[in-house]
Nucleic acid binder design. Structure first.
Lengths: 167, 167
DNA sequence: CTCAGTGCAAACCGTTTGCAGAACG
DNA sequence: CGTTCTGCAAACGGTTTGCACTGAG
């Protein structure tokens, strides 16, 4: 939701290094997209990335943005998310909290990151119990953030009056 | 991934009751779709639902299936899932494990359900710490199931040789 | 009978792809 | 210079919607 105060040039360079390792050209479009993604702590959509680029005067086609994001994801510098909005969001992995999870406000869509040490243990335990080898998990907790709640938002749900046991 | 041995008629009737409560007609298409969804313990895609209906001789348009699934979800009898495959899956909530989570095999796509009591406590704690009121969570653990591992599947990942601290 | 539901096909929308021209190495 | 990229626009695929017709109540 903002610009980091951390210098982002090193991260962009890291991406350049990845491209060279793969024998791929380091184009100015790729650097511009990387700059935007590394320059924000938010979970950006392609549309948001496009409009930030436009504000900065760069006029880069959507296709190129998608293709560059693919590379960023492959390089493991960026993570792709799907919060069920109908489109993907991208977040760089250079923030303070590696391997974190997300709290998502149903009202305003704000995404808060958190990290819980228990979770990793639980992931391993559950996987073991089912004969799985685990690679990754995704935990999203949906609810209402404090500001929205204070503003009067509620999570009214309705369905069957007496459905199935819900707990 | 199979047909339940539990009688499904009561569940279809429950849906009928919901429809009447809402003043909506109980049509044979709606009952047919409900029958398919309640009749399977799998996480069905719309395409799968359509083809099961076709096998049974029912020829119901995709639009109707989508519209009926919306109603089933609204009734809270069915849950919608997005496992990142590019389409949604639907699961009825009448199985043994209410409020469960999912283990997903990256190789064969098999979905295993599990339930962990710790998780709910953790969800509440994390939410409280961030001033959230929680409504629901979604935990998916991705990995390799035992059969796939025995068949030689691996989770080879590649990216930057020395990216960021990964733990 | 009336109002909502159904089926079809067209519209949608995020994402992907084909291709002519531009740029990297 | 050859190879890959870029940008545009068209294609894609799951989902939604408009509309004439059918069916539930």
């Amino acid at each position: 939701m903002s610009t980091t105060s951390v210098p982002i040039a090193p991260f962009v360079r890291l991406f350049g290094r990845y491209l060279r390792e793969q024998g791929l050209p380091v184009t100015q479009q790729r650097e511009a997209v990387a700059q935007v993604v590394f320059g924000s702590d938010a979970h950006l959509s392609v549309e948001e990335i496009e409009s930030i680029l436009r504000e900065e005067g760069d006029r880069i086609g959507k296709a190129t943005i998608y293709r560059t994001l693919d590379l960023l994801v492959k390089s493991k510098l960026v993570e792709e998310h799907d919060f069920g909005e109908g489109f993907k969001r991208y977040e760089h992995r250079l923030s303070r909290q590696p391997d974190h999870d997300h709290l998502i406000c149903r009202e305003c869509g704000q995404v808060t990151e958190f990290k819980d040490p228990e979770l990793r243990r639980m992931q391993e335990r559950v996987a073991r119990e089912h004969g799985f080898v685990t690679s990754r998990h995704k935990l999203e907790i949906y609810g209402l953030c404090a500001p929205c709640r204070e503003a009067g938002a509620t999570l009214e749900e309705q369905g069957l009056t007496c459905p199935i046991e819900t707990v």
